[in-house]
Lab assay of single mutants.
Amino acid sequence: MKTQEELTEIVRDHFSDMGEAATLYVQVYESSLESLVGGVIFEDGRHYTFVYENEDLVYE
Rank of each mutant, 00 (worst) to 15 (best):
residue 40 V to Y: 03
residue 10 I to F: 05
residue 23 T to K: 09
residue 6 E to K: 07
residue 27 Q to W: 14
residue 39 G to A: 11
residue 14 H to N: 03
residue 7 L to Y: 04
residue 34 E to S: 13
residue 32 S to P: 02
residue 9 E to P: 02
residue 16 S to Y: 08
residue 35 S to C: 15
residue 37 V to W: 09
residue 14 H to G: 06
residue 12 R to W: 12
residue 18 M to I: 07
residue 33 L to C: 12
residue 14 H to L: 15
residue 49 T to P: 01
residue 3 T to F: 06
residue 11 V to H: 01
residue 52 Y to T: 01
residue 13 D to M: 15
residue 7 L to K: 03
residue 8 T to S: 07
residue 55 E to T: 06
residue 56 D to W: 14
residue 33 L to K: 12
residue 4 Q to D: 04
residue 33 L to F: 09
residue 55 E to C: 13
residue 32 S to A: 11
residue 36 L to T: 03
residue 57 L to T: 01
residue 57 L to Q: 02
residue 25 Y to T: 06
residue 28 V to R: 04
residue 56 D to Q: 15
residue 26 V to H: 00
residue 19 G to C: 14
residue 19 G to D: 04
residue 8 T to N: 05
residue 3 T to Q: 04
residue 48 Y to T: 00
residue 28 V to L: 11
residue 45 G to L: 05
residue 4 Q to M: 13
residue 8 T to Q: 08
residue 49 T to S: 06
residue 54 N to S: 06
residue 30 E to A: 07
residue 22 A to P: 10
residue 40 V to G: 00
residue 26 V to I: 12
residue 26 V to M: 02
residue 32 S to L: 09
residue 18 M to W: 11
residue 40 V to I: 14
residue 25 Y to G: 02
residue 41 I to R: 03
residue 29 Y to K: 01
residue 8 T to I: 15
residue 17 D to Q: 14
residue 17 D to H: 15
residue 9 E to N: 11
residue 37 V to N: 01
residue 42 F to W: 03
residue 33 L to H: 08
residue 52 Y to F: 08
residue 47 H to F: 08
residue 42 F to N: 01
residue 40 V to T: 01
residue 60 E to W: 14
residue 9 E to M: 11
residue 45 G to C: 10
residue 47 H to I: 09
residue 48 Y to C: 11
residue 23 T to Q: 09
residue 32 S to K: 09
residue 2 K to Y: 06
residue 12 R to P: 03
residue 46 R to P: 03
residue 10 I to G: 02
residue 40 V to A: 03
residue 56 D to N: 14
residue 58 V to P: 02
residue 59 Y to G: 02
residue 49 T to M: 10
residue 50 F to P: 01
residue 40 V to C: 09
residue 55 E to F: 12
residue 33 L to S: 12
residue 14 H to T: 05
residue 41 I to L: 06
residue 50 F to Q: 00
residue 5 E to Q: 10
residue 52 Y to G: 00
residue 10 I to L: 09
residue 18 M to E: 04
residue 44 D to M: 06
residue 8 T to Y: 10
residue 32 S to W: 10
residue 33 L to V: 09
residue 21 A to C: 15
residue 45 G to A: 02
residue 53 E to D: 06
residue 53 E to G: 04
residue 10 I to T: 03
residue 31 S to R: 06
residue 52 Y to C: 13
residue 39 G to F: 15
residue 21 A to K: 11
residue 53 E to I: 13
residue 57 L to Y: 04
residue 36 L to V: 06
residue 25 Y to Q: 04
residue 58 V to R: 13
residue 44 D to N: 04
residue 57 L to N: 03
residue 42 F to T: 02
residue 29 Y to A: 03
residue 19 G to M: 07
residue 18 M to D: 02
residue 38 G to P: 00
residue 34 E to I: 08
residue 34 E to L: 08
residue 51 V to G: 01
residue 19 G to S: 04
residue 23 T to D: 07
residue 20 E to D: 10
residue 53 E to M: 13
residue 16 S to I: 09
residue 7 L to V: 04
residue 4 Q to G: 03
residue 41 I to V: 06
residue 30 E to H: 10
residue 14 H to W: 14
residue 22 A to L: 14
residue 1 M to A: 10
residue 7 L to D: 02
residue 37 V to P: 00
residue 9 E to C: 14
residue 3 T to P: 03
residue 17 D to Y: 13
residue 60 E to A: 09
residue 36 L to C: 08
residue 56 D to P: 01
residue 47 H to M: 07
residue 8 T to G: 03
residue 1 M to P: 12
residue 8 T to P: 03
residue 34 E to W: 08
residue 20 E to M: 12
residue 59 Y to R: 02
residue 60 E to I: 13
residue 15 F to G: 02
residue 57 L to V: 05
residue 40 V to M: 02
residue 9 E to D: 08
residue 52 Y to L: 07
residue 37 V to Q: 07
residue 12 R to G: 03
